[in-house]
Structures are given as C-alpha cells and as structure tokens.
C-alpha cells in the first residue's frame, strides 16, 4: 500500500521540527531561567554563557564518543572511571616519569604534549579493552563496562596510592590551563579554545557518521546486528574500533578534566560522569536500543544539562531540588522526543 504523500507545507513543518526540535527544549529552559532570574539579568550575560559552554566541554567531549557507541547499540559505563584514570596517569607521568627523560627532550617543552598524548592513548586503550572484551567474551556491553567501571577506578586509585597526585604549576605551560578557561586568551576567540575544539570534533564526527563506511556501519550494527553480519560487516572488529573511538573521546575528556582541575590527578574525580554523558546523548535523541542518535542532538543535550545546572545555581534552587529538577527534565525531554519521532516516523 502506498502511504498518502503529505502536503508540501506539512513536510516542511516536519523537517523543521526534526532539525530544530532539539533546540526547542533548550530555548524553553533558557527562557524559564531567564524569567526566574530576571532581576539581575546576569543569567543571560555573555560572561555566564561563556561559563556554561566551558562547563559543557568535558561532558560534551566524552558524549561524542558515547554517541557513536550508543548508535552502535552499545553503552559505556566506564567513562567516568576512564577520565579519572587519565588524570592520574597524566599527573604521574609529569611528576614521576618526566624527570627521567633526557634533558635535551625536556628543553623542547614536550612534557605537556607528551602527557596529553599519553592521556588520550590511555583512554583509547581503556576503550579498546572494553570493545575487545565485549566482542571476545560475547557478554553484553552493560556488564563488561560495569566491570571496567570498577576496575579502571580501582586502577586509578592504586596507581595514585589512594591519594591525589599534584603537579607543580611550573610544569604546566600557561596555554594548557587556558584550554578550558572561562575568559579566552586571545580575546578574539570569544569562547574558550576547548569549546572550539569540541565544535570542530563534533563537525568532524557528524561528517564521519554520514559520509564514511564505518559511520554507516555503526548505524547498521546498532539497528540490527544480525543484519550487519549478513551484509558482510565484520561486527566484532567494528565493535572494538567503536569502543576504541569512545575511549579516545573519554581520554580527551580526561585531558580536559586535568586542565579544568588545574593539574590534579584525582582518582575520585568524575564519579557519575558516565550517567551525565549517557543522559546528554539520550536527551539529544539517542536510543539505548541502538541505531539512533545524532551529534547535533548530543551537543544540545549537553547544553541542556549545563544550562540546567547553571540556571539552578543562579536561581538559588537548593542542591536537592536541583537533582529532582534535572531528573524530571531528563524524563520529559526523552518522552517528548519519542512523541516527536512517533509523529514523523
């Protein structure tokens, strides 16, 4: 049976709703907080939005990786632990390993770039291990990453001998701290370099998901793994690769967290980050049953979370109520998104 073709204006409307729908929630929440804090007007100030976008960067970077994983029908609960492990590894490297390097190498000021590379590498390794375990043992991702969630956190605590590892200020070049500084330097950047980096990576990932073979394969695996196998896709290898990608993103988020904390390698940091990351992807339209999710949606999801947290602080809502509000918003956002899809499908 041929379904009736919708009229042109109706199709335009659904198209607009699909593209701008996610922003509607963001606009609504922004308007709500702007109204609640209308006396000072500080909530809508440029400075405050610079703050909000910086607070989006860490969750957002990790969420990019999580988007791909969720599109491929997986989940990664170990993101927060990976971030903690990365900060500890970077701090230990700068404190313990770096002094052992030859003087000639250090004269080139390679310490921080090396630490960053190490951080991203450790993240990638964690992700690849997740993927290898999931493919190799054929256990669902939820269980495997629940295990590595504990294991990576434990590894971080063990490496750091249960304390926080501090890196002296001299070892941190000024540009490193500026990555996630609220006031960008130079000024013409308008927002922190980390925000631009996140935008750049997002654009790259969006193009990748749409125009590359592995990108399309991720959707196939998430939508129906059997079909993917049937179509000649090497599913186990793809999974390792996808979790590796997610791990790289988590590693980068760890590097940013390291910068955000001012060179502190803390094994307890970023606890609960994984749930915020998953919430951001889900608010942005990702489906935990796989096959759905967009980079734009994820970014908006992260922004919604950051605006909520910042807005609650500005409006003087107590901590306990904040948590309730955020929980309720997550449920509403996802329900609305399902309704929206129900209409366009």
């Amino acid at each position: 049976m041929l379904p009736a073709r919708p009229g042109l204006h109706r199709r335009l409307l659904t198209w607009a709703w699909t593209v701008f729908g996610p922003f509607a929630g963001l606009a609504l929440i922004t308007a709500l907080f702007a109204w609640m804090t209308r006396h000072s007007g500080q909530f809508l100030s440029v400075d405050n939005w610079r703050t909000i976008v910086v607070h989006t960067v860490i969750v957002g970077t990790a969420a990019l990786g999580m988007t791909v994983i969720i599109i491929a029908g997986g989940i990664d609960l170990s993101v927060g632990s990976t971030v903690a492990l990365v900060t500890v590894c970077m701090a230990l490297f700068m404190k313990k390993v770096d002094p052992l390097l030859p003087e000639a190498l250090r004269a080139w000021k390679v310490t921080m770039p090396l630490a960053i590379a190490l951080g991203v590498g450790v993240g990638g390794l964690c992700g690849a291990l997740n993927g290898a375990l999931i493919s190799g043992l054929r256990v669902v991702p939820f269980i495997i990453t629940l295990g590595t969630y504990q294991a990576y956190r434990g590894l971080a605590t063990w490496l750091a001998s249960s304390t926080t590892v501090y890196v002296s200020a001299e070892m941190r070049p000024p540009w490193f701290g500026r990555i996630v500084a609220i006031d960008p330097e130079p000024r013409w950047l308008l927002v922190a370099p980390g925000v631009w980096m996140l935008l750049g990576l997002s654009l790259a990932l969006a193009i990748f998901l749409r125009y590359s073979l592995p990108g399309r394969y991720a959707y196939a695996i998430g939508s129906n793994e059997s079909t993917a196998r049937l179509c000649g896709i090497n599913v186990p290898a793809m999974k390792v690769w996808i979790y590796w990608l997610g791990g790289l993103a988590a590693g980068l988020a760890g590097v940013l967290q390291f910068a955000f904390l001012g060179g502190v390698g803390a094994p307890t940091t970023a606890s609960g980050l994984e749930l915020r990351v998953i919430a951001a992807v889900v608010i942005g339209g990702g489906s935990l049953s796989g096959g759905e999710g967009t980079v734009l949606g994820t970014l908006v999801g992260c922004l919604i979370m950051a605006v909520l947290e910042n807005g609650c602080v500005h409006a003087g809502i107590p901590n306990a109520i904040q948590d309730i509000v955020i929980g309720v918003i997550i449920i509403i956002a996802v329900t609305l998104d399902r309704l929206r899809r129900g209409r366009t499908a």
Binding site: L213, R216, Y217, Y219, A220, S223, N224, S226, T227, A228, L230, C231, G232, I233, G291, E292
Partner: peptide
C-alpha cells in the same frame, strides 16, 4: 535478521555493496 527495520530503504538496500 534480513532487514534493519529502523533504518531507511537506501541503507538496507546498499550495505553489502556500500
């Protein structure tokens, strides 16, 4: 197994020959 029900016709039709 045969089809990824949630994906578009063009995706389903072209995966092996992508």
């Amino acid at each position: 197994e045969g089809l990824a029900i949630g994906l578009a016709i063009e995706d389903n039709m072209t995966y092996p020959g992508l």
